[in-house]
Design a protein around this nucleic acid. Sequence first.
DNA 1: CTCCAATCTTGACAACGGCAAGATCAGAAC
DNA 2: GTTCTGATCTTGCCGTTGTCAAGATTGGAG
Lengths: 201, 201
Amino acid sequence: MPARSRPYHHGALRQSLLAAAEAILEREGLAALTLRAAAREAGVSHAAPAYHFGDLSGLLSELAAVGFARFGARLRSAAAATPADPLRAMGFAYVGFARAHPGMFTLMFRADRLNMQRPALRAAADAAWQALSAAAGAADAPPLNRLAGRIAPWALAHGLAVLLIDGRLQPALHELPGGARDIDALVAAVLAPDQNASDTA
Amino acid sequence: MPARSRPYHHGALRQSLLAAAEAILEREGLAALTLRAAAREAGVSHAAPAYHFGDLSGLLSELAAVGFARFGARLRSAAAATPADPLRAMGFAYVGFARAHPGMFTLMFRADRLNMQRPALRAAADAAWQALSAAAGAADAPPLNRLAGRIAPWALAHGLAVLLIDGRLQPALHELPGGARDIDALVAAVLAPDQNASDTA
DNA sequence: CTCCAATCTTGACAACGGCAAGATCAGAAC
DNA sequence: GTTCTGATCTTGCCGTTGTCAAGATTGGAG
């Protein structure tokens, strides 16, 4: 009996499947991330993932939870590193994460493929939201405006990130002299218009 | 020979398929919008749509083009009706369209399922972008800041719309006394913070 | 040593996108 | 009026997917 063949029990298949799923997501995109593809990548039978994650949305949701955990950590880290203006730092971190990991970012905000009832996903997403809302403080305003003050920077960064990684800004970028190389400058000008508008007026 | 049975040639199948596709999109969402479902809804064989649209992305793209045409018209109409502040009016129209037609809006910005090479889609999307950028004018600024000035309101409205229809703001809305009924007020406070911040300070 | 529950495999099913081949039909050509 | 041609639609098939049911395997409790 050559023990060469993989043992029947993998041992840490759940983690392996998550790693395999992330590899596929980064290599081939969200469309190629199927239950069977993850099983192939991990070297197990096609039905193995269903045991650990229930269904496809389960696998995607657990992977998105991992993404939200990293995302939240990166936001907090950026805010902590720039105490002078944590909100702006988180805006850059927000868009930076989306550009560095477009597949993961896309997955994290694709509500139709996720199961928000999953505790891990819900917790990780809530934690990221907490990091965001902690930086935007206007305690003297009424509740509605306080909430709006927290949502507005989020919406701005999110909209910019989504439009960027969807390639929706590609035609607009051609208007710039530097072409696509000016993306960083454009992001800065959108997220912090005051900073750049005054040095040229 | 009872002419009861549908004639072999439909006559206006392309339009019927687009209408069927839109009905499915609004009734069951984007995930249920398949080539075969559209064929069933239109009462033709499962392979008929491929003749008119090539593949699934073709059907989705042509439908998205219809959506972009309406979207652009609505943006222009809103701007024209509010000459005092066309940019803010278009922001409201932007979010309003997304909330009124979440399925169509989702489709329009799902780059992975669309074929942007399609002339109809490209033209309709460009027209909508033209409407948006026409309202944001700061001609005295350098190119980068001019572009950023046009993109920022777009990103803000887009981010707010996406977060709203994805249900991502649901937990935040619970902090408001009126619950989900305050969405309109929240949208106004996010899109035009100056307006509402001053009347309570 | 026995047994059990967790883990993984095998096999099946319906639905899907896509392709190829054929059927049907309106209208042009003559 | 007949023939032909091209556009339109159908039928049939293939490979892939998610999901389920049933069975095989095995580490570890008793």
